[in-house]
């Protein structure tokens, strides 16, 4: 499934990249599992897995929004075959380091892993998400989705705004 709208937010998303009730040992384990899945689906190169883990250690991606904590792990474009986003709704929140504030933890309920291939149009995608996530009810509604398809549809609507 590809979203290509007027803003060229051309990020691929597919039920295969979505996880509900996602369980992991910790932040790094969650990132590893999601990255390995994207590699299995051919979206990213094998090198993406170690690159995104290294990147998270150096530049952590936990973000505290009013409604929920999220994480947006991502890494350099050369590890990506296809621009895509993978989403995991966590069964139990996981503690991530907050972006920009070493030593501060964020209780993350949903992870958006970004596989960015070409810098610009896909960064617009990030900008759109950040704007939408600040709106009342948006993150809560995504997190409370009962199925992959429900989440996918809600996400699709956000991107078309």
């Amino acid at each position: 499934m590809i979203f290509q709208d007027d803003n060229s937010l051309d990020m691929h998303i597919d039920p295969k990249y979505i996880f509900m009730d996602f369980e992991a040992e910790n932040d790094m384990d969650a990132i590893k599992k999601m990255a390995a899945n994207l590699n299995k689906e051919g979206v990213v190169k094998e090198s993406f897995i170690s690159a995104i883990l290294e990147r998270e250690k150096k530049f952590c991606t936990g973000l505290q929004f009013d409604e929920a904590g999220i994480a947006i792990p991502h890494t350099d474009t050369q590890h990506v075959n296809l621009p895509a986003v993978s989403i995991a709704v966590l069964k139990n929140p996981l503690s991530f380091q907050e972006m920009g504030t070493p030593g501060t933890k964020v209780n993350v309920e949903i992870i958006f892993m970004l596989a960015i291939k070409a810098a610009h149009s896909q960064v617009e995608f990030l900008q759109t998400l950040m704007t939408e996530f600040q709106k009342n009810g948006v993150l809560t509604s995504l997190i409370q989705s009962e199925s992959k398809n429900e989440l996918l549809n809600k996400f699709k609507i956000l991107l078309r705004k």
């Binding site: 505290q64 929004f65 009013d66 972006m99 920009g100 504030t101 950040m130 996530f133 600040q134």
Partner: peptide
């Protein structure tokens, strides 16, 4: 303005995370 801490900035520095989260 940056989204991560920088140790050796040679001009005034302001953390820019709020532009992402609105907080």
């Amino acid at each position: 303005v940056a989204t991560t801490m920088v140790s050796e900035v040679k001009c005034p520095f302001i953390m820019g995370i709020a532009f992402l989260t609105g907080r």
